[in-house]
Design a protein around this nucleic acid. Structure first.
Lengths: 142, 142
DNA sequence: TATTAATATAAACTTATTATTAAATCAAAC
DNA sequence: GTTTGATTTAATAATAAGTTTATATTAATA
């Protein structure tokens, strides 16, 4: 575990968030897995460790983390918000077959487009869609 | 009008869509305005010309146009789908103040990222968020 | 321990989208 | 021009899914 509960507790304290058991566990999960779960997926996953975890706690916790800039919200599809711990600029690829989201490195220091001169840019997003290697492989084996 | 009703009628016929009055008007609107409306905004706008236009017609029409690859769906926020006639690759900027969406040119021929080698890419999207020039100007005048 | 904040539970809400069905429109044949 | 059949539209209701709220309970801090 790169991110120990101790370190994450400290991180929560720094942000003025009381380090409850649930918050530490949820943050630990996101910090130590390169995943991009929806709120629903976080709930499903964390129920294994925290059987009493509730939907409202997950939503409140994730929103609090985004507010505190500990997590990043990503929008690829119009019907789901995903969360990730990785705050560094990078692109996302979503597989149309399996739904998995992959990270990829890409140069975000694109020169500011002429059309946006005088604009204040707060957030840059790049996402691709298609079929991932693993799903392409499956298809061939049919 | 760059795109006459006649030309659009032909386009609809080519795609196998009966060129109804509503379809022509909606397509005409999108083809001649560089806008990125939601279904709701299309309804609101077109009601001026087509007072009896209904929600279901707008949704069906827009979906049919996307299906026929006459319009492109764009997802920036998780709670709204926007539509545009411009099928060429370009980026989008959404202003967090006024909600307006702007187009900008950007090089999409980025070399395929290493992490995506072996992946099939069907769709590339780039969107920025921030505050547009016009809203920045307003702020200064307060 | 007292105080304050966070969680669990269930229910309610919000809102984009779709289904349904009757009426209207259109194309084509008569 | 009229009839016929199929497609499209209008209007309403229903769906569906993610998200939020109310409240009682529990946990964390001072």
């Amino acid at each position: 575990m790169k991110n120990s509960a101790e370190r994450l507790t400290e991180e929560l304290n720094k942000k003025g968030l009381r380090p409850s058991h649930q918050r530490i566990k949820i943050l630990e999960y996101l910090a130590n897995h390169p995943c991009h779960p929806t709120a629903e997926q976080v709930l499903f996953e964390m129920k294994k460790e925290l059987p009493t975890l509730s939907k409202s706690t997950v939503y409140k916790t994730l929103n609090a983390f985004v507010e505190a800039e500990m997590l990043r919200e990503i929008t690829i599809e119009n019907n789901e918000v995903r969360y990730e711990y990785n705050l560094a600029d990078h692109g996302h690829f979503k597989c149309e077959k399996c739904g998995e989201v992959y990270d990829f490195e890409i140069d975000f220091d694109i020169s500011q487009p002429e059309e946006l001169s005088g604009f204040k840019i707060n957030d840059k997003n790049i996402y691709f869609k298609g079929v991932c290697k693993s799903c392409l492989k499956k298809k061939q084996n049919i």
